[in-house]
Design a binder for these strands. Structure first.
Lengths: 115, 115
DNA sequence: GCTGCTGTCAACCGTTCGGTTAAATATTGG
DNA sequence: CCAATATTTAACCGAACGGTTGACAGCAGC
């Protein structure tokens, strides 16, 4: 696992199973068994996925009797959204004409995000 | 490498070196040597990173003499942005109160919104 | 207590990842 | 053609990933 938070978040999202888990958690808290049900996968595997998501700050976990319910961490994806925002002008249609204009007048350097 | 495009994009972004390469490409096209300069890393390593980014659809490459300049693929991150948009309500401040309300009814609070 | 259910831990396994070095492949210019 | 420059390919390596199975721990109810 990477050390920097952004890499951890991207890595956590780079797995369809983990994205499906997040989608399921949009409907509310769920136990490990609930989350594992749709997958042809052992319980420890799902448990590991949850640990990856938790370390990435995308979910948090509670304790209720013998259950460890998982829930979405609301601010978890904010870092990704902010990083992505720097690149919005490259795909957003409303910036297409500006982009073309910038390319035309300066072959050299439209200053982009310096990250 | 995963087969589905979204996983490939997320995986490509889950590496600081590759994100730095993308940031550099915001300033314009660059050759492999240019891109490799800031890193304490061999040229083949950078070449591999470029291949990952290209397969993810985040950059494209041309040919000019013996150079293979890389450039940003403008629409490359649109898929990510669209996926992320589904979760916007979980972090966006303008939805904070809705979020709180949803958490309330998730926990089975018998009182409705009017009480 | 014991039983059953829930979840994690530990060890293992095959594959992929991120890097290296050395050799091969363009492509241009003299 | 030859030499120089730029880049990729091939083979290899250690570490991390995604999964398994089996043993173990926490908690409720009889």
């Amino acid at each position: 696992m990477q050390t920097d938070p952004l890499s951890a978040k991207f890595a956590a999202l780079a797995d369809p199973t983990r994205r499906a888990i997040l989608a399921r958690l949009c409907e509310g808290e769920a136990s490990v068994n609930d989350l594992a049900a749709p997958f042809d996968m052992s319980l420890p595997a799902v448990s590991k996925h949850l640990k990856v998501l938790e370390k990435a700050g995308l979910i948090s976990r509670g304790r209720e009797a013998q259950w460890r319910p998982a829930r979405l961490e609301p601010m978890g994806m904010k870092g990704i959204a902010e990083w992505l925002e720097h690149y919005r002008r490259y795909w957003d249609a409303s910036f297409d004409r500006l982009d073309a204009y910038l390319k035309k007048i300066q072959k050299g350097d439209p200053r982009g995000p310096g990250h």
